[in-house]
Write a protein that binds this DNA or RNA. Sequence first.
DNA 1: CTGTATCCCGTGAGATACTG
DNA 2: CAGTATCTCACGGGATACAG
Lengths: 121, 121
Amino acid sequence: MKKSSVKFSPSDKCPVRTVLDRLGDKWSVLVILLLGAKGSVRFNHIQKEIGDVSQKMLTITLKSLEADGIVSRHVFAEVPIRVEYRLTERGESLLPHIQQLSDWAEENMRQILKDRKQYVA
Amino acid sequence: MKKSSVKFSPSDKCPVRTVLDRLGDKWSVLVILLLGAKGSVRFNHIQKEIGDVSQKMLTITLKSLEADGIVSRHVFAEVPIRVEYRLTERGESLLPHIQQLSDWAEENMRQILKDRKQYVA
DNA sequence: CTGTATCCCGTGAGATACTG
DNA sequence: CAGTATCTCACGGGATACAG
């Protein structure tokens, strides 16, 4: 079993970057966690739950995640229209890793914030 | 064992965001992976390995990570001066999660890029 | 309800030059 | 070698208004 290594060559498309650049935006991770927790959720509900994401950014975020095959979009031709989003299989396979990161964050946040304050450049 | 849940309340400092906002920048993750793989590395070497990070951004990245207690900085009063960086315990505890994400990325990148291309808005 | 279309601004980040 | 200091610019992302 080879050590999990990373290609750091300049223009070479480092896989970590390709994916993390997307996850690194302001909302993707939150959306994934939310869908992971709630299953199938409609647009409006996602926005309410996250609380401070604009319509524009939520649309963009969902489209990116959809383009990457991480969430799927389901339209119900009701009136008023209903659109629900859920994780794809790929999204589900990503979820646990995000969750672990989230858990780590939760455990360490308090101390990190403390350290951050005490740190003097 | 309670379900790993996330606080999505608006102004509430969501831990995921607090941490991921930092990790979400362009270079932090790569630095962590590099230090995780190589142990103690000097400034210049990090820059060479990553390949396309500017001095300015590498400095900022390292300082942020240091402020968060994820990497530590060691100065050797030689001439020319030598400065080495390594993961702290906290950094080490974060590393496996980043690595898993990285591995996931490596496994799924090819297909994601393909999907991304075929996706039509 | 679920988006799109603009306008606009702050900041992330590169290039370059300089210092201890 | 390991940074700092500016300058500059593009773009992420918010506010608002409009559309299907």
